[in-house]
Structure formats: structure tokens, C-alpha cells
Amino acid sequence: MKLTGFFALTEREVSRFLRVWQQTIIPPMITSILFILIFGYSLGSKISAVAGVSYIGFIIPGLLMMGVIMSAYSNTSSSLYISKFQGQVQEYLVAPLSYWQIIFALTIAGVLRAILVGAGILAVSLLFTSITVHSYAMLLFFIVMVSLLFSFAGIATALWAGNFDQMNIFATFLITPLTYLGGVFYSISMLPSFWGTVVRFNPILYMVDGFRYGFIGITDVPLWHSVLLVLILTVFFFVLCVWMFKKGYKLRT
């Protein structure tokens, strides 16, 4: 199988966000610094250690996951949506690229941006506190799988969306609130038991919790729940993307 076409599309997608790194890589780092300053320093000093970890050390893994989720999702969704809007997505459709190649080229760019953002947030975090790693394997697993998951989800959204409003629905009403409420800033043990049950329906909580395990070695929910959920959701969105591309959902008339 010739992969020149696949590499060309990947290169275009990667250069698309690297060219405007000031808009794609830097903002999540600034957001994280702000959160660290506000919650970590000013308020965090009033919050006692969570599970034996300083509050600032507790929120950093969550901030990182937040940046990863947003970056992966917005990279694939905006790239594909704009291509659809300008009609330039037809370039991929008339070329001898397989559906897999198109999906993976878009996804690799999303994953790469997410990992760069994650590394950037980690780097700025190190300015404020020292960080220990409990399990590199789990860190790698969660950062790669979650960025894959949201890259696929971004592709599916861009294919589905017929206009800008529809494009923003998921980001505004689903992903952003679920991320903020996804255990970035609190441990379930800090919540009243009713809310402790409610937040367990938020899938992002599991991603944050599993990823945080990689750093501090402690979880709120069983680790295997998080691993399994992330695997299932990733496969689900992947299959959805393949199906939509194959069918030419809102791509081919």
C-alpha cells in the first residue's frame, strides 16, 4: 500500500495548526497558568491536601487532561468543518485516499496537538511545583487514548454539523461543562454523597481520574473502570467516523 497520500494529508493537517501555534498551543498553557494561580495558590492554600497530595499537585493532572481534550477535539472538528465549508474537503474525496487514511491523517494531527499542549502545560506547571510520576504507562495510555477519542469525536461532529451553531453545540453545552465538572478541581470524596453519585455519570471524570493516577497513584473510582470506559468510547467514536466516511455522511450527496 502506498502511503504518500496519507503522509501528505497528515503533513498538511499538522502544519495547519503548527503554523498558528500562538493560537493553538499557547492559549491552553495560559489558561492553565491562570487556574494554577487562582486555584492552586490563592484558594488552594485554604484547601487542605487531597488524598495526601497538595491541592496544586492534585489539579495539575486535571488541567493537563482538560487541555488535551479541548485541543484534540477542536483540532479535528475545526479543520474538517472549515474544509467542508470551503468545499476543499472534496480534494480528499476525489483523491485515491482511503477513508481510513483520511481519518487517521486528521486524527494524528489532533493527537499531536493534544500532546504538545499537554507537554506545554506540564512544562509551565513545573514552574510552580515539583511533579512526581507514579506510572508512565498509565500516563501514556490516557493521554494517547483520550486524545484519540476526542479527535474522533471532533471528526464526527464536523461531519454532522450543518452550520456554525451546530458545530459549537457539543463544545459549549457538553464537553466544556463536563470537563469543568469532571473532577479537575475536586475529589469525589469532597462532595456530598448525592453529588458524588451524580458525577459518576460524567465520563470525563474517569479520564481525569485515571490520568491523575498516573501521577499520584491514587484514584477516586477503580482504575479499570476508567481504562475500560476510555477504550469503549474510543472504539465507539472510531467506528462512528469510519461509518460516516464510508457512507459519505453530509460529504457526498
Binding site: T4, G5, A8, L9, R12, S83, Q86, G87, A95, L97
Partner: peptide, 23 residues
């Protein structure tokens, strides 16, 4: 209908499309 990437350079458009076709 026009279906070019409006924000890309002419050269890059051709460069990447050549790639899509395996050149």
C-alpha cells in the same frame, strides 16, 4: 464551484494535492 482552500498559497495547494495522488 470553487473548492480551494482560500487561505493557503497556490504552491502549497498544488504541493499537497500532488501528495494526495501519491507523487
Amino acid at each position: 464551484e470553487f473548492n480551494l482552500d482560500q487561505f493557503d498559497k497556490v504552491y502549497n495547494t498544488l504541493f499537497f494535492n500532488a501528495g494526495y495522488f501519491g507523487i
